[in-house]
Simulated assay, not measured.
Amino acid sequence: MISVEHLTKRYGRHTVVDDVSFDCEPGTVTGFLGSNGAGKSTTMRMICGFTRPTGGVARVEGVDYRRLPNPGRRVGLLLDAGAQHPGRTGRETLRVSADTMGVPRRRVDECLDQVGLNAVAARRRVRAYSWGMRQRLGLAQALLGDPRVLILDEPANGLDPEGIYWMRGLLRDFADRGGTVLLSSHLLREVEAVADRLVVIGAGRVVAQGSREELLAGTGTLVRARDLEALRAALGRAGLPVRAGTDGGLLVGAEPGSVGQTAADDGVPLLELRPAESAGLEQIFLSLTAGDSVREAVT
């Protein structure tokens, strides 16, 4: 179980994470989605105690992560696959972690096998690993303590399509056995197939959360017109919520009939009018996160 309540992080006048709240339940995979710089990594670092929040609290299994005894046995982390000693072999990396956590060394070979790093790869120095191999080693390290919770920041980066498919299966199996998974990504398709719930963050704030079906339900109308500014003005005067779409159109928080009638009343010819649900979750995700600026590396 992961509980995030009103997490906020400011650096001077710059707000990186703004009043973020969500829960991750046992037996589920939660996809934490947003464009690069949206605040995903900072939020995850606050959950794990590596970054002190300006406001709000986060709990893992009911307590502050920093108060967990031997946290690697309860929570598996992969926040940066590059943060591994380049001079150690893959097996040495896991043995050091196993000794630190008090895990039997047999778990090293079990986890190497679980993530698909064979004996040859296990003997190689980490500096010779591809990024995809480092991700696999990081996953092995996260799984080493047989935790009940996994917190993974962009774990599919560097994996080929086969590797991404493999990772989805591994995480789905972990959750199906009662585990809790929080998985961040800036690419919807990486997590859509495996996630039970989605939390979408944009410009440091949660802009949507729920299951795929919940996010698609009642998402409004996609509309395009040759004179987009006239259409936006007409919708604004009618009090209809509007945000930019990703294909030169607008996403309106109202039924197609209301949108069409508003445009007709103001004499704005339409080029396209359709329920937003027909565009699929990817269109909704891109619309929700449109306009996010790429922030500093702290996010």
Rank of each mutant, 00 (worst) to 15 (best):
A238Q: 09
G239A: 07
G236N: 07
R237F: 01
L240A: 13
G202Y: 00
T221I: 05
A244M: 09
I201D: 04
G218L: 14
S211A: 06
S211F: 11
V200T: 05
A203E: 11
V207Q: 08
P241K: 01
V199C: 05
P241I: 05
A233H: 12
Q209I: 05
E214L: 01
R226T: 12
S211D: 03
E213Q: 13
R226E: 14
V223E: 01
L222G: 13
L231A: 04
R237M: 10
G236Q: 04
G236A: 09
G204S: 09
G210L: 04
A217P: 04
I201S: 03
R226F: 02
G245T: 09
G220I: 11
A225W: 01
A234N: 08
G218S: 07
G204H: 03
L235R: 01
R205K: 15
T221P: 12
G245M: 07
V199K: 04
Q209E: 15
R237C: 13
E229G: 06
D227V: 04
R237S: 08
L240T: 09
L240E: 07
E229Y: 02
L228A: 14
G220A: 09
V206H: 04
G210P: 12
V223K: 04
L215K: 03
R205V: 13
D227P: 09
V200K: 06
E213Y: 08
V200Q: 03
L240I: 15
G220V: 10
A238W: 06
V200P: 07
T221E: 05
R205E: 14
L216V: 10
A217N: 08
G220H: 05
G236C: 11
L222F: 14
L240D: 06
E229C: 01
A203S: 15
